[in-house]
Design a protein around this nucleic acid. Sequence first.
DNA 1: AATGGCTTCTGAACCGTTACGGTTTGTTCA
DNA 2: TGAACAAACCGTAACGGTTCAGAAGCCATT
Lengths: 366, 366
Amino acid sequence: MNRPMRTRRQATLASLAAELGVSRTTVSNAYNRPDQLSPELRRRVLETARRLGYPGPDPVARSLRTRKAGAVGLLLTENLSYAFRDPAAVGVLEGLALACEDAGVGLQLVPASPGREDVAAVHRAGVDGFVVYSVPDDDPHLAAVMSRPVPTVIIDQPQLDGIDRVGPDDAAATEQIADHLVGLGHRQVGVLCMRLARDRNDGFAPVDRQQEAHYHVQRTRLATLAKKFASVGVEWSAVPVVERFEHTVDDGASAARELLDANPHVTALICTSDILALGALAEAGRRGLRVPADITVTGFDGVAEATRAGLTTVHQPVLEKGKAAGKLLLSAGDRVAPKVITLPTELRVGTTSAPPRTAEERWFGP
Amino acid sequence: MNRPMRTRRQATLASLAAELGVSRTTVSNAYNRPDQLSPELRRRVLETARRLGYPGPDPVARSLRTRKAGAVGLLLTENLSYAFRDPAAVGVLEGLALACEDAGVGLQLVPASPGREDVAAVHRAGVDGFVVYSVPDDDPHLAAVMSRPVPTVIIDQPQLDGIDRVGPDDAAATEQIADHLVGLGHRQVGVLCMRLARDRNDGFAPVDRQQEAHYHVQRTRLATLAKKFASVGVEWSAVPVVERFEHTVDDGASAARELLDANPHVTALICTSDILALGALAEAGRRGLRVPADITVTGFDGVAEATRAGLTTVHQPVLEKGKAAGKLLLSAGDRVAPKVITLPTELRVGTTSAPPRTAEERWFGP
DNA sequence: AATGGCTTCTGAACCGTTACGGTTTGTTCA
DNA sequence: TGAACAAACCGTAACGGTTCAGAAGCCATT
């Protein structure tokens, strides 16, 4: 405790009313509807409140009565650090926070611990709605949110029956980058991707694991890459895909190392996030591979760091994504049918992609 | 609305009890104290709940009765984008979120819009305590938080009477960097700082504005620099200090430009944040100034980007700062006296600081 | 047969507020 | 002079739970 402990029970609206000899309604009005009572009485109420140390109507009691919590909940991935370390996630968070601020409602981060399946926090959260971001399809927290009788918006998740959704067209975005690489002539590619399921698997991900991935975004991107490259004759099951549970630049680098050690002839590293791609660039540098002359590296998301590094990537408006989700949630109730917002993506060709070296060049230099 | 609208009024604990022909207490116990009723009855309760679409006890009503909201509020600077763009702030946020997750409580970002002095959101937030971070001393939201009868912890603020506080020893940290620069021989220095008050002033900040700064951290850092440099004979009022309202790399660059245009003989740019320092580095590069041969640049905070850039800076454990604040808040009540946690700082000499060039070198090259 | 100790369930009080539909008082105006 | 109306204030009934001190029933012990 860090404030001078009030010796007796906190003053309440009722005790204040009693002290003043007015009804509780009047005190309530003094705070909420100044036009409902004379300025003089209001002044007296407020002054007595100050004298008695009454801090104003209790927010929780008010919420109960008005059936408005004045906050929305955000459920995000099991790993909190991920959300704060990934610039794309921070962008979404910021956009969401901005939308909430605009509307004057709070944004509550709901704890969703990974280990203990402690869904209770979801039930305990006093919020008027939920935004769900980057959660695996089978996460029990997601199910818990769905069981709450409040509006919900999901970001970057597969379409759920009757639920608002915000996200880019991941398949189209992936096609853009795939077309770019195919057009440049790359056929021997490798992929670095983020975690595919809730269990840890730092290493190669076989095709079945790719197809069964619980993270919608990763699943879609991999599936689209597979389709695109298969269409130009690449046997996808032979394409190395390295997965990382954690999502850091260092993990991107180690994934690139693992992939290149086993597949030195790869001409392009396709990364399902910019962060991983930045790591791949670092690893390429360490190996003395020039980018893009010796190897092409591409990312995903188009975060500021990637732009600065000249990374070829697909940009998506992460801030807008969060904002749109917030607005959607806060305008629920106006609608009757669920709404889906698809955000535009844009291929940004940087300085990290080029045609592959020919076999000759590879042996004898350019 | 995005869920099949329940045609009639939501089921409540009472209606469920009535349906089952048991008391409300028993239904409540089915959810909160499974050991208080027979497994068989509990099963029936839960099953009937499912059938009736009862989502479990209402969080707000529960909060009212138990007097626990299960969330803590975070009040941060007027500018939300700042909090998400500054890696140091994100670190604090992450630490705080981790502490909250550990304790299973939510973390609610309380909207504190800059323009409209809408303090209502602070009063409306159903939280068990507040963390206040990086808010100007005279912000009305801060006053509003103080008026709420809940524990509060402040980060990076001046000591407030009877309030827990977490922060580095900014004065000591600043002395470290000042001593380093003085030791190298720098006497002609310039300073880039963040906003000093709530009004915008992009430009030089005279001494009185520095002294009256409403942001505690900035005020302390400037005051300590002034003291240190004065002690070696530098006339502080002649030292150029450029202020920026926004806190971005670009603003750091433009501030450096403004300062160097007016004071080309400056040998060291002291920045009160790493972000500004990164901008200063960029501007130095644009001018063809070599760092540290031609000019020394230092930062503050020790964020990852700064380390990567080899910036000389004072590191402070931002993640720990947030964590400590969270733990402190969540353990309030155990204590009776307010607690102050001072975090260690560490001078990290990178590759951006060196002795100043002599006048000769400046004219004729090294 | 009385006593004590479980387990299981209940009744009533309470948490602090706002919504709703009034009543009272005073002023205006035909 | 009295009808009409606005301003100011009030009483009651929720809002949806949790909690605590028992009551009822049952069994084992003394």
